[in-house]
Design a protein around this nucleic acid. Sequence first.
RNA 1: GGUGGGGUACCGAAGCGGUCAAACGGGGCAGACUGUAAAUCUGCUGGCAUAGCCUUCGGAGGUUCGAAUCCUCCCCCCACCA
Length: 439
Amino acid sequence: MSGDVADQRETTPMSTVLDEFSWRGMLQDSTDGAAEHFAEAARTAYIGFDPTAASLHVGSLLPIMGLVHLQRAGHTPIALVGGGTGLIGDPSGKTQERQLLTREKAAENAEGIRRQLEHFLDFGAVSNSARMRDNLDWLGALPLVDFLRDIGKHFSVNQLMAKESVKRRLADEETGISFTEFSYALLQSYDFLELFRQEGCTVQLGGSDQWGNITSGIDLIRRVEGERAFGVVFPLVTNSAGTKFGKSEAGNVWLDPDLTSPYRFYQFWINTEDQDVVRYLKFFSLLPREEVEALEVSVRDEPHTRRAQEALARDVTRRVHGDAGLAGAERATQALFGGDVTGLSAMEIADIFSEVPSSKVGRDALSGAGRSLVEVLADCGVASSRGDARRAIEGGGVYVNGQRITEVDRTVGMDDAVDGRFVVLRKGKKNYHLVEVEG
RNA sequence: GGUGGGGUACCGAAGCGGUCAAACGGGGCAGACUGUAAAUCUGCUGGCAUAGCCUUCGGAGGUUCGAAUCCUCCCCCCACCA
């Protein structure tokens, strides 16, 4: 890298967006000239999101952060919701033909995604406000004959068949690939072309699995418009354990608080392994380089303080769930991992444990001799069966109101209910369950 | 269509008339140690009224005092040959 280029970057802050991606480890690959393209002027760039579900999960967080960095650097980010392509399905990375979404479902999901993206991007900025588009706007009204003439003409079936995702499916006699999915690359390329025409969008970003689709779009723009466009792809997020990133014991970690509570969301990040935490800080937080580097030192020299995990959890949770969501998650964490439950009032418990799974039980069931703990554990789902509950107690893994229970025949009665209203059950270190007394 | 091999618990895989709720490995859960990390070690891992009973070994019948194990029929996979 020569000196004068560096100087130029000093004076134009938006030139740094690829540098930003680069030091954060987010830059897997980019087409030639992409860095210069961003350096020269404020650009418009887009990323597509598939409306396969009504909520995004943390697996989509990296591309979202990509848009955030673009906007911060002065460029205009477009989030393209694939209301149209969602009806088709991208064969990339899929070994099976995809289940088709209904139009209603795709529209509903697109709307949910739209709401979530608003947490990350500024849609009301003066100069480079983020935009949201839905490709159903142009795909839905596209006459087949026009599509074949104007778009299909530019694609070589020979090249499409050479694509890795298509090749693998062709090799598999059993599954094969439908014409519908085979055509997916054309549709995504057409999206890029439309955004180029309508929005002056010259760059497409995406996960590294999108590289082929992105370059197809670039080619299409060159052929149809005679103009140059660019692509940037992010790496696949992995964790050091080799398991899929974004899964917790409870399954996918969603951005929707109704699907994954802010408390669970926060806990997902707090539990990040040392080996992954610095990489994740670069990917998912907006902390500046110096701070990330300081935290990296902290992970090395004083790992027990877990400052890096905390910084990560705070930054990401605040962005997704807001200050109130973060505060609630931290309060619950503090009470659950820091202190003793028995000292709290019913109101405090209700507040803190609103994040935690709960069930109700009738007052009369607990009066008198009470119910056997084994039964209660099995009924509320903390244990999968009575035998499981029994074994968990025998293994020393069950707590009532923070006190370890050792007697298998222990009963739960009204005197266990804090303020006569709540019993806090816990199995293992992290699994809490709140039993609310009714009536 | 033919021949051969096979279907066992969450997964992989032993068992091949009683001693089988079924070895072993993985996964999962819990415990210890820690830092709500990783690694390691330990225990548990069909259900229930837990020294006992009930339901499981592709499905349905049968033989037997007794079957995951033997017989019959059926279903499904895999390999090779057509």
